[in-house]
Amino acid sequence: MPELAAELETLALVIEIGEMPVRVKTNDPAFHHMLSDRYAGFVTASEHAEIEFNVDLLAPRAGDPDADVCATQRAGRWSLTRGDFSAEWEPDSRRGWIRQSANPYSIDSVLRIVHTLVLAKKGGFLLHSASAIRNGKAVLFAGVSGAGKTTISRLAPSDVTLLTDEISYVRRRSDGYVAFGTPFAGELAKIGENVSAPIAAVYLLAQGPENHIDAVSPSEAVRSLLSNILFFAEDEDLVRAAFDSAFEFVSRVLVSRLTFLPDSRVWELIR
């Protein structure tokens, strides 16, 4: 039955974020097209992938995308579930599957979770923060929703390259840390540039009547960092890894508090 074989042709694309290529395979041309658009700038022509997911599309259902993620590991296999998707991933074979409806948000969450799990083993993490490159160095602006991540991103002058206004990608290197652009956008609804730079500083965002930068103690820096690191798994080893990563990061990267007015003059402090 050649007609049926043609209908079931598998389409694939490789989405590379933070130097980790992930191949996504689907039988649905419209979904493939949607992913190509959604991750434009992060889709590579490379054949190599560190992880491969087969996506099984289900009929839309009333799953809650705001439900808590459950990420558990059993017998070397990760199980990832939320109201709107279920997925499994086996790190040893580097393969997994995702069951979801044809929407970009579910797979976006799976990618975030998988990246956090992989990064945690390597001393890196995803951080609730905007990030940008200026003068060849990356700066991160950390804070919870409403702290000003999108605002400071929107105020960035033209010589600033925006990496993300929502989720920063941090990898450890032997000589420090590097931030990568991500397609994980916040209220700005604009994906970051797919570039990277060494991290020079992290600013904990606060809004106030004037622009100023204040020192914070290392313990406050660690606490703030830990409260903004994306964390999904209830796994003792990964908790320890994230905990140690926060301390290591603070020992190498300057963390300060940036109080700012919502106008572009704040960028005069960021050089």
Binding site: P218, S219, V222, D235, V239, R240, A242, D244
Partner: peptide, 17 residues
């Protein structure tokens, strides 16, 4: 997981972080 920093002992539960 536990570490001391600036004289403060910080502890993270491995159960629920």
């Amino acid at each position: 997981a536990a570490r001391s920093l600036d004289g403060e002992m910080m502890i993270m539960s491995g159960r629920d972080s």
